[in-house]
Computed example of a mutant assay.
Amino acid sequence: MESQSYHHRADTAASLPPSRAPRPLRWLVVGVVASIALLIALPIVMMIDQAGLRAAIEEDTGGGLNPEWKDWVLVATIVYAVVLHLIDVALLLWLVPRVLRGRNWARITLTIYLVVATYFSLYSAAQGAMFLWAVIPTDILHVLMIGPLWIPASSRQHFKPQTERTSGAQAHRS
């Protein structure tokens, strides 16, 4: 009899939907939407303002770029930005729902992604002022998104294994 009631409770707990993410983690969605908008906007601006991009490339190469290569470098830069930013968008869209479901591996991976992305966006900023309008808010968003992943107690509790969360909740009820 005891084993049946235990199995019934375990089956019921396993079939319940994941707990609702705490409020600080739900703010990640706002940060991700803003980040995605900036990730999409930057390559679009590069395509629209090719003269500005060409000037940034000229400045970066010191004007010593062979004229035959200028168009190729321009296209390669735009393609690189589009592909890299699409990968960034895909990673964010893949990781954030898993973070909201309490997957600790996703929290760690998202944190690593945000740190690495910040580093490379700072590198991008060093390439010219043309990109600062996207780099500065993106880096601010990255830092603001890391905080809710680790600092609030409700977030840390959300990432504990399910058994710890349920036993902790039962202990509070007793």
Results as ranks from 00 to 15, higher is better:
residue 142 H to S: 15
residue 151 I to T: 03
residue 31 G to L: 10
residue 157 Q to P: 05
residue 92 L to P: 01
residue 84 L to M: 15
residue 171 A to R: 09
residue 157 Q to N: 09
residue 46 M to Q: 04
residue 79 V to K: 04
residue 71 D to S: 12
residue 162 Q to I: 13
residue 155 S to L: 01
residue 162 Q to G: 10
residue 80 Y to H: 13
residue 96 V to D: 03
residue 132 L to M: 10
residue 79 V to Y: 02
residue 80 Y to A: 12
residue 153 A to D: 05
residue 86 L to A: 08
residue 43 P to G: 03
residue 10 A to V: 15
residue 49 D to I: 10
residue 95 L to W: 08
residue 117 A to Y: 03
residue 83 V to T: 06
residue 55 A to E: 07
residue 67 P to W: 01
residue 132 L to R: 06
residue 58 E to M: 10
residue 72 W to A: 13
residue 92 L to W: 08
residue 144 L to T: 00
residue 43 P to Y: 00
residue 86 L to W: 12
residue 72 W to Y: 11
residue 44 I to V: 15
residue 40 I to S: 14
residue 63 G to P: 10
residue 1 M to Y: 03
residue 133 W to T: 10
residue 36 I to L: 03
residue 29 V to L: 13
residue 72 W to T: 15
residue 133 W to A: 13
residue 125 A to N: 00
residue 86 L to M: 02
residue 102 G to L: 11
residue 83 V to H: 07
residue 112 I to E: 05
residue 39 L to P: 08
residue 150 W to M: 07
residue 81 A to E: 13
residue 5 S to G: 02
residue 15 S to T: 10
residue 57 I to H: 00
residue 77 T to G: 08
residue 26 R to G: 07
residue 165 R to Y: 12
residue 105 W to N: 01
residue 53 L to C: 06
residue 143 V to D: 04
residue 25 L to I: 06
residue 105 W to P: 11
residue 124 S to N: 13
residue 37 A to I: 10
residue 11 D to L: 15
residue 103 R to T: 14
residue 160 K to P: 07
residue 116 V to C: 01
residue 51 A to E: 14
residue 22 P to E: 05
residue 140 I to C: 07
residue 1 M to H: 01
residue 6 Y to K: 09
residue 135 V to E: 06
residue 173 R to H: 13
residue 135 V to A: 07
residue 27 W to G: 02
residue 26 R to M: 12
residue 63 G to A: 02
residue 114 L to C: 02
residue 38 L to H: 08
residue 109 T to E: 15
residue 125 A to T: 06
residue 34 A to P: 06
residue 110 L to S: 06
residue 30 V to Q: 09
residue 103 R to C: 12
residue 1 M to W: 02
residue 93 L to M: 03
residue 120 F to I: 09
residue 159 F to C: 09
residue 153 A to C: 05
residue 63 G to W: 00
residue 9 R to S: 15
residue 39 L to R: 04
residue 64 G to T: 13
residue 66 N to G: 11
residue 114 L to N: 08
residue 19 S to W: 03
residue 86 L to H: 04
residue 53 L to H: 00
residue 116 V to A: 08
residue 5 S to I: 14
residue 93 L to N: 03
residue 73 V to H: 12
residue 102 G to F: 05
residue 168 G to H: 05
residue 126 A to W: 06
residue 121 S to Q: 13
residue 167 S to G: 11
residue 7 H to V: 14
residue 57 I to W: 05
residue 163 T to K: 09
residue 101 R to P: 09
residue 60 D to S: 11
residue 111 T to P: 09
residue 62 G to E: 01
